[in-house]
């Protein structure tokens, strides 16, 4: 598979996310989450037997109905569901320890997994330069999610900063957190307090990752992830004919 010809960073990003999902997982994405939506539909198409929960109330919807909008609140993730299992049920699922993966995003993030979703800039919380949309439940879910995945379709020093001033939530010490960007994967293992560079994508280098990251990266040698497989690319194409995957990039 050749970068730029057979696949782009969008497909590599999606493949990296798909590979995080394991059989039997209860996997959640929230609203405004077009990338994880396509990822999870493609994982279903690849035959992974996991449970798909989301805010439309639908549980395991008909993933072959093509999404037509980047909104993840439409009936697209509702029609063909086997049951309704809404956000209140989902919060309880995670609080009971039965959730496995939550796909969440951020405005900014730092090396210790402090995540900004509320405000950026300005002298204080009530006088921000940018009032963000808020955590949408991340503060409740992250402390009880064993494998939080932060998906962020931009990798730059404005997003990945030395220190997040106001943290809507922070990675839980006893849980794992994974940060996936268009260049690489960072992981914070349970028991640890900082992200380590875990692997890089085939079309980049550690140097490029370092240049675009606002915190210090100590790792000097990390594995290069395999490019998307033909099966992964075919699944992405099949579930997403309108190319909603490209929306966030």
């Amino acid at each position: 598979m050749e970068y730029g010809k057979d696949y782009g960073k969008e497909e590599m990003f999606a493949a990296a996310c798909i590979r995080e999902i394991q059989e039997g997982d209860n996997v959640f994405h929230g609203l405004a989450s077009s990338t994880p939506m396509v990822v999870m539909k493609a994982a279903k198409e690849l035959g992974k037997d996991f449970n798909y929960v989301t805010l439309s109330d639908g549980l395991d919807h008909d993933w072959l109905r093509p999404p037509y909008s980047a909104s993840t609140l439409t009936e697209n993730t509702y029609i063909g569901s086997v049951a309704t299992f809404g956000l209140d049920d989902i919060f309880d699922l995670f609080a009971r320890g039965q959730g496995h993966i939550a796909f969440l995003s951020c405005l900014q993030i730092d090396k210790t997994g402090r995540i900004a979703m509320s405000v950026l800039g300005g002298p204080d919380y009530d006088h921000s330069a940018l009032r963000g949309p808020g955590g949408a439940g991340t503060a409740s879910i992250v402390p009880c999610c064993p494998r939080t995945i932060i998906w962020k379709c931009a990798h730059d020093t404005r997003t990945m900063v030395p220190h997040v001033k106001f943290a809507t939530t922070t990675a839980a010490k006893d849980k794992s957190m994974t940060l996936i960007t268009p260049l690489c994967i960072f992981r914070k293992a349970p028991g640890e307090t900082e992200f380590k560079l875990d692997s890089i994508f085939p079309y980049t280098t550690i140097e490029e990752v370092k240049e675009n990251t606002g915190w210090e990266i100590a790792e000097t040698e990390v594995p290069v992830l395999d490019p998307p497989t033909a099966e992964e690319l075919a699944a992405l194409k099949k579930v997403d004919p309108n190319y909603i995957l490209g929306y966030e990039f």
């Binding site: 909104s71 808020g134 949408a136 439940g137």
Partner: peptide, 21 residues
């Protein structure tokens, strides 16, 4: 928990106007 209009419709303009700055 979340105050926005999502994706193509963008951030919530009235909320931002009222709360920022």
């Amino acid at each position: 928990g979340f105050f926005g209009l999502e994706n193509e419709a963008g951030l919530a303009p009235g909320m931002r106007k009222a709360m920022q700055g």
